[in-house]
């Protein structure tokens, strides 16, 4: 490796900046592979069902992933930093319950937004304090708060439901910005751009990667590890609050079982997007593509009248397959060489 393009006969040894160009890296990337899967799913779907390639149907299909993906963006940062939040679906339940309660108190739409995001932030702060302040493992803490947050919703609501949301509130989950482009989809795109910039273009994002790869080394480099992680819990809580607003608006009602089981779908989306569950690696574009893949699969199966349980079996298999494939490929290659 001593002879490189940069060494044009100069005596001084110089190390080149990059070994591979960004384009070369992209060609060997997880994101490209995933993009291939997305195209394949899209093509299969359009052959499988004549209703798939319809603008309004496709627009409807985006609702399968927009809310989950918004949480997944924040979750991606959290998982890259080496933590996880399994309470996100329960935060939705609690935030939605709080919004429903506020409606009963006569709150208008702007107050509902504040309540939704505010409850999300509070829940995130609660998780963050337990993990970073007391040094507890996040997987245990958030399994606990998963039961806690939803439990509160059940106590408040029982088998009742909050309804009667103001009509202006419906826009968040049911409104369209232009033609078939829903407000939620626009929000999804904006948050994708926002989180991609935060993770890939700011020094905060760099700290997230550093902490995920080596938290002790990050501490010894002067990074305020606990503070960064706390901010990530806050972000994840806030995004769960945003998802709660969209979902509640779309359904027009709050039941304590709202968004039940979403935490697993969110984590699946993140991991499918190439984020290392061990922390330290992953990208927002990967999560965006994974969101489309999961949404398309769900939608396609829906058009084919495949029952929901089969869908979740398929998603589970897909997850195991995409995680196992690179490892199997590496072993096969190694054996071939040996």
């Amino acid at each position: 490796m001593s002879v490189t393009a940069n060494e044009t006969g100069s005596i001084e040894r110089q190390i080149p900046d990059r070994l591979k160009s960004p384009a070369q890296r992209f060609l060997a990337s997880w994101e490209l592979l995933l993009l291939g899967v997305a195209v394949a799913v899209f093509t299969l779907n359009s052959f499988a069902s004549p209703y798939f390639l319809d603008a309004w149907n496709l627009s409807d299909a985006t609702y399968n992933f927009t809310e989950k993906a918004m949480i997944a963006f924040a979750m991606a940062l959290l998982i890259i930093s080496g933590e996880i939040d399994l309470s996100v679906a329960s935060i939705i339940a609690l935030a939605s319950t709080a919004m429903g309660f506020a409606v009963q108190m006569g709150a208008d739409t702007s107050v509902l937004i504040l309540v939704g995001v505010g409850v999300g932030l509070l829940c995130g702060a609660f998780n963050g304090v337990l993990v970073t302040g007391l040094g507890l493992p996040s997987i245990v803490v958030t399994i606990g708060t998963m039961s806690l947050f939803r439990g509160i919703s059940y106590i408040v609501l029982g088998d009742k439901a909050y309804t009667g949301y103001p009509s202006s509130f419906a826009f968040f989950g049911q409104g369209y910005v232009w033609w078939v482009v829903s407000f939620e989809f626009v929000l999804f795109v904006l948050f994708a751009i926002f989180f991609a910039i935060v993770l890939h273009r700011t020094s905060f994002g760099r700290l997230v990667y550093a902490i995920g790869n080596n938290p002790v080394g990050a501490l010894f480099s002067g990074i305020q590890v606990a503070r960064v992680k706390f901010v990530l819990f806050l972000l994840t809580g806030a995004m769960s609050g945003v998802a709660a607003i969209c979902l509640t608006s779309r359904l027009g009602a709050t039941r304590p079982s709202i968004a039940f089981g979403w935490e697993l779908e969110v984590v699946t989306m993140v991991v499918l997007g190439g984020v290392s569950i061990l922390g330290g690696a992953g990208s927002i574009p990967g999560v965006v593509i994974a969101a489309f893949v999961m949404g398309m699969v769900t939608f396609g199966f829906g058009l084919l009248n495949v029952p929901g349980i089969v869908m979740s079996i398929f998603i589970g298999l897909l997850l195991i397959a995409v995680i196992a494939l690179p490892r199997i490929a590496r072993q096969v290659l190694a054996r071939g060489r040996g």
Binding site: D17, R206, Y209, A210, N214, G217, A218, S221, G280, A281
Partner: peptide
Amino acid sequence: QGAIKGLPIFQNISL
């Protein structure tokens, strides 16, 4: 405590 393995050289230096 020293090297942050998984990050490239230049990112270790600029951290």
